[in-house]
Each structure stands twice: as structure tokens, then as C-alpha cells.
Write a protein that binds this DNA or RNA. Structure first.
Lengths: 114, 114
DNA sequence: TGTTTAATGCAACTGAGTTGCAAAAGTAAG
DNA sequence: CTTACTTTTGCAACTCAGTTGCATTAAACA
């Protein structure tokens, strides 16, 4: 399972993971392992443009501190999805206690820009 | 349909809309009208924490220019979801052409902070 | 070896969103 | 009014990501 994330810097959708691991393990098992890896701080998840769930390897996450304010990019053309290691400053919102921020940028990646 | 959005400043999930309009129109019709209203620039949509679709009235949207960089807030406790009218500056990302940005903040709203 | 606990498989289910098609409602001539 | 045409709606069936219950297997450990 983790090999998938070691081979790429991109995020991987659960749908693709289930497909790629079809021979090795059951769909339910994929979901359960992903949940565990996220709890452990090895992976983090986010929701793609279409509402599908994506996972990516954590670089600077811990079990308690997940993906704070690092955005994700999803290419409208090829679907490639990846973490962007730039800092987004979330302005404080009065009267709200913000726990997490999820920023999804969509557009065209460099490969699809030609 | 639009009355729902006139009565509140909050966003409304499609699920809730279907439920509230159950007597007046079919589920399919709700989806179709929402799609039309979004095309026309009357409403804009975004994806909630759980992957469900939400709609909110447009204040400064046009058919071509939707919800650019205005974030949404979703309360972890009561589920209330609303537009935040603060500007988020998306730093330019080299080699990427960013078309849209969707920022979802989650936490506790003022009513649930007691 | 037996017992307990955790990990997996499988099948059936849930629920949001979609699709195809037919019925209804609206629009515009003739 | 009536016919022809277009748009809107309802309904049922479907798709598909994600979940659940339960039985089976594998690990851990006494």
C-alpha cells in the first residue's frame, strides 16, 4: 500500500487505489488501512473537485497536526492531483474557531499547458 | 426554490434542499434547477467536508466569474455552512494555471463556541 | 495446544447524484 | 381553438463511492 505513495509525489484517489490493489486486497481493506494510516499521521486525505476522496503522503504531518494550510492542486485536464508546498495564511475570522483549512486549486498543470 | 436562499445567508446542502422541496418538486428537478441557477450566476456551489454539494446565493458572482477566492466555513458541531466574505490571496504557482480556488474552513461557529 | 485479539474477505447495503424516457406544461403559429 | 414544437417535470431505474455486519483467517500470547 505505502509503495504506491513512495513511488509518486502525487495524491492518489481512493478509487484508483482500490483498482491498483485489487489483486492484493479487498476494497474494504483498502479503506480501513487508509483510515489507519491517516490516524497514524502517515497519510493525509482531502476531497477532490468532484467529491471523491484523495490521499497523499505526509511530509510534515503528525497524528494531531494534519495538512494545516498546505493546499492541493488538481488538474482539470489530466486529473493529476498533488500537494503544493506553499503556505497559505488564513486570516483570523472573528467569532469563529477555525480547526482546519482545506484549499483546493484547480486549473491546468504544466504538462497540460502546452 | 430561490425563497430558500432569500430566507438565509447560509449555504444549503442539496440533500436538505431535496428534503425541503419534497412536496413541491422531484429530486431530479431540484438538481436540474440548481444547475441552471448556477450557470446563470444566481447561485454558486462548493463541496463540503464530507463530499456533499452545497449551494449558496451569489453576491458578486457572474456567470463567468464564480466565487473566486471567497472561502466557506462549515461548523463541525452544528453543521452550519456559510460564505465568508473575506479575501484570500492565492499566491501564484509557477508552471500552473489556476482557474479556481476553493477554500473550506472547518471549526466551531459562534453559536457552538460557548 | 487453546484462547484471545486483530486483520481481512465478502456480500449486501446506503445514499448522493445521474440517466432515459414518457407525460405535462408552455409557446407559437395557422 | 387546434396543431406542431420546445421546454420543463416526474418517475423509476441505475451508477458508484463509501459503509456495515458477520464470518473467516491470521497473529499474538499465555
Amino acid at each position: 500500500m505505502l509503495e504506491v505513495f513512495e513511488q509518486t509525489n502525487n495524491a492518489v484517489s481512493v478509487v484508483e487505489l482500490v483498482e491498483r490493489l485489487r489483486r492484493e486486497m479487498n476494497k474494504t481493506t483498502v479503506y480501513r488501512i487508509l483510515e489507519r494510516l491517516e490516524d497514524e499521521g502517515t497519510l493525509h486525505s482531502f476531497t477532490g473537485k468532484n467529491g471523491l476522496k484523495w490521499y497523499a503522503a505526509c511530509k510534515e504531518c503528525s497524528p494531531s497536526h494534519h495538512l494545516d494550510s498546505h493546499p492541493h492542486f488538481q488538474c482539470r485536464v489530466c486529473g493529476k492531483t498533488e500537494c503544493l508546498f506553499i503556505d497559505i495564511s488564513i486570516p483570523p475570522v472573528s467569532n469563529y474557531k477555525i480547526d482546519s483549512a482545506e484549499l483546493l486549486l484547480t486549473g491546468q498543470c504544466k504538462d497540460c499547458l502546452s
